[in-house]
Design a protein around this nucleic acid. Sequence first.
DNA 1: CAACTAATCGTACGCCGTACGAGACGATCA
DNA 2: TGATCGTCTCGTACGGCGTACGATTAGTTG
Lengths: 228, 228
Amino acid sequence: MTAKLKGTRSRRSQGAGGAPGSEQEAPLSSERIVATAVELLDAHGVDGLKMRQLADRLGAGAMSLYWYVDNKEQVFDLALDSVLVYRGPPQPDGSRDWRGDIVHMLEDWRACMLRHPWSASLLPRRALGPNILGRLELLSKTFSRAGVADADLNVAIWSLWNYVIGATITRASFDVSDDDRAAAQQRLTDLSKHYPTIERSRLLLDNDWDGAFRKGLDFLLDGLVPKH
Amino acid sequence: MTAKLKGTRSRRSQGAGGAPGSEQEAPLSSERIVATAVELLDAHGVDGLKMRQLADRLGAGAMSLYWYVDNKEQVFDLALDSVLVYRGPPQPDGSRDWRGDIVHMLEDWRACMLRHPWSASLLPRRALGPNILGRLELLSKTFSRAGVADADLNVAIWSLWNYVIGATITRASFDVSDDDRAAAQQRLTDLSKHYPTIERSRLLLDNDWDGAFRKGLDFLLDGLVPKH
DNA sequence: CAACTAATCGTACGCCGTACGAGACGATCA
DNA sequence: TGATCGTCTCGTACGGCGTACGATTAGTTG
């Protein structure tokens, strides 16, 4: 029935009667669907992804997608995981700078998600894909290398995971399309009015997000690994 | 036109012809709508809240709700903020145990959100309500009391905010209805199979979430406040 | 030729949020 | 008294969504 194996691919209709000059469409495939879904998600956000529009963009009928994916949720799962491929730490392996490796891994993770602002908020409520698990596995291995084990290891992994997810979601939620940046700023300024400490610190207005992320990360790592 | 002021309230129809014994409904109001929305969100999650069902539960027609709220998004905003009221730290004020106050505030915040698992994931993508801002203001004041100021204060607030949000979202996402707890466990066990370090540490299976939250929080606070 | 499989997609169904406008009711005023 | 108004309720309808179903086409295999 609904076999999801990539079979041999060949033929393609290009209109009626062989009219020349019509554009050549690549054949439909799971990969193309996912790649196009990522484009649309980047452009319109989570709520802006519609199956019909996705199919349109691929030059296909809406229901054709369902030969390759079970449902819209699976599109989310695949798009999310596809965005989180990790090349690995700069020094392939035996490096003893475990802390540098971890920081690199987490900053890269955050950067990947900020490049696709929908991804962070999607991650916690969707299934874990191989790329995400690969990152977790690598993180665990690196901590082991640093001498963290057992219960401490789980505490470390989850603390960092939580921190990275939270920081990225928060950061992404403060991004707005340039169109209404002014309006958003005004709204935040007004909001602050009745909260003096928040207003004085300009907490909602300008922040060095990257620097703050890095600082909190350092503090966490200071505590998470044994004295030295 | 669409005035949103709570006016004088009085009459209520109770069916046709004055049939006796019909149940008395409280009049519709913004408060009742929000309270019932919270009930439904608790029961069915973010995607499970439908305007028609909400109206049904209130004994009203679907469109009656729109006299009190602009749209569904506003229902989310109000429900979210309504869930985050904060009673304040145990020692009303002048206490010098700023760290205890902060920990209390953040653990209470996390507890509030875990009581309503939909709230954490909603918070970052919805408008900030007065209760949330009140918590932030109190947090800022407490840090000021501890001698943290200016840029450091913003770093501290956002690091903690990120950590709490991330921890709560992650924690909530691991909660499943008891029905399919077994299935979920099995799925995670299978997943771990190909990731040896994850499997050995049982990272995805059993965790002391509360303990881990508290530990990471302590590490963050250790770093965020000046030596002493 | 027939039978089977892989792939495409038009149509239709049920559900959603909500625009619109008609009504019901009490209060106000001529 | 009746006309008018503001407040509140809700039936109907519209457009858009995800997707079930089954017809259709084309290539492969006998």
